[in-house]
Each structure stands twice: as C-alpha cells, then as structure tokens.
C-alpha cells in the first residue's frame, strides 16, 4: 500500500519538497479519485464490450450453445445495462469532479488542446522517421493523452446517449431508434478498436512498459521516467513548492 497524496488542501505527512536527492522521488500521475474512476471505467468498458458484441455472434456458433442460450441472453442483457449505468455514473461523477474539485479543474486545464500539441505531433512523427534525433518535450499530458481523452469523452457521450435511447425504445420513433442503433454499433467498433490498438499498445506493448504499465494501480511514476516523458511538467513542479506538495510522493517505508 503506497501512501497517497490527497487532493484537497490537507497535506499528507509524507509529502514535501525533495530531499537531498538520496531517496528516489515518485510523481503522481493519477490521484486516488482518478484511479478509482479509471478502474470503474475500465471494468464497465470490458463488460460492455463483451456483452455488446455477443449480439453479433454468428448463428452457427450460437447454435452450439444450445438451450443455455436463453439464460445467457438474459444475463447478457442485464449485465450490459448494469455496466452501462456504471459507465454513465462514472462519467457524470467525472464531470462533477472536473467542476468542483481543484484537482479536477487542474486536470481539465492541463487536458485542453493547444497549438503546442499540433507541433508536438508533427515533431514526434518526424522523430519516428528519423528526421529529428530527439522527441519533443511533453507537459503533463502529451498530445497522445489528450487525443485519447477527448476521444473517450466524445465516444462515451455518443454511446451513453444512443444506449439510453435504445433502452427506452418505446418512447421514440423507429427512425430515431434506427439512428441510435447504427451510432451505438459503429461507435462501439471504433471505441473498441481504438482501445485495443492505441491504449493496449501504450500500456502493454511499449517495450519499457511491458508487461504492464502499473500507473493505474500505483498512480505514480519515478523521476527518471518523469524526466524522460514529461520534462516540462517536471520542470514546473521542481520550480514550485506548492506543485511539489501535490505531485511528489515518497516511496513507502
């Protein structure tokens, strides 16, 4: 159990400005609330994907399941709706969090797309194809994080709305339901593929993160990684003691 740094004004005992540098420093990437939000989102996403795509199973495979099919279908429907509710609840809480908590507001500000991100994208691609010998320096959130975050926001909004429309089908005209069904289905494909191709790579397949990036559990990364991946943020933190209180944490004793 690592000590965590809470986000309101009370400071944890172990927080503080960096020492003489003997002890390794850890920088917080996700605080506790954010970790829980991510965890719930992740679980509900996986459940939704599995129960959702079950509908697309071809007949030949479903036939093999036999009479269990009906019970399976019932629980599939139930789980999908439960998980959907969880996801909508988490999203609603997140909006609440962004507005009312200081850390949330900081998150929102840091996530807003800027012109720098476009420059970073181009420079990074140039670095990949060996046209530059160094990758650009990122702040707390790189263009990759921002892209993924805003895609998530858009995707979740669409899925939630279309999902709710489908859930309350008797209220709407068939055309509305048809549109909701198409959007729900295709957005699901997009979201699923995006998660698999992008997110799974970022946390599982990137060579130095393999087998798994543990940030979602620990919430922190070490100093070396911070300097490598988020140097601008690192500099900002080191220059400001208030930020140090928020973002630095000692390893557990």
């Amino acid at each position: 159990m690592q000590t965590s740094n809470t986000e309101n004004t009370t400071m944890a005992l172990s927080a503080g400005p960096p020492d003489d540098g003997q002890e390794p420093l850890y920088f917080i990437r996700l605080n506790r609330s954010e970790k829980i939000q991510h965890l719930l989102l992740m679980i509900s996403f996986v459940v939704l994907v599995i129960t959702g795509f079950m509908l697309k199973l071809p007949e030949t495979i479903v036939q093999k399941i036999g009479p269990v099919g009906e019970t399976l279908f019932f629980y599939r429907s139930l789980l999908h709706r439960i998980a959907g509710t969880v996801m909508i609840a988490v999203s609603a809480y997140h909006l609440f969090y962004l507005a009312l908590y200081e850390a949330g507001r900081r998150w929102l500000v840091d996530m807003l797309p800027q012109f720098k991100d476009l420059k970073d994208l181009i420079q990074n691609l140039m670095y990949y194809v060996k046209l530059r010998d160094r990758h650009p320096e990122f702040d707390r959130f790189s263009y990759m994080h921002k892209m993924e975050y805003w895609a998530l926001v858009a995707g979740t909004t669409l899925m939630s709305l279309s999902g709710l429309l489908l859930w309350t089908e008797w209220r709407w005209s068939k055309f509305v339901l048809d549109v909701a069904a198409v959007v729900h289905g295709m957005e699901a494909v997009l979201a699923c593929l995006a998660i698999m191709v992008w997110h799974m790579y970022e946390i599982h397949l990137k060579p130095h993160k393999s087998p798994m990036d543990k940030v979602w559990l620990t919430g922190c990364i070490d100093e070396a990684e911070m300097k490598e991946e988020h140097p601008l943020h690192y500099q900002k933190i080191m220059a400001d003691s208030a930020l140090q209180h928020i973002y630095i944490v000692r390893p557990p004793r």
């Binding site: 691609l125 670095y127 990949y128 194809v129 790579y201 970022e202 397949l205 990137k206 060579p207 130095h208």
Partner: peptide, 10 residues
C-alpha cells in the same frame, strides 16, 4: 503511429 513508436523505441 504506434508502429513507428515501437520502431523508434527499439
């Protein structure tokens, strides 16, 4: 993007 990233990291 990710393929290029992988190659660059390697």
């Amino acid at each position: 993007h990710q393929t290029l990233d992988l190659l660059a990291t390697l």
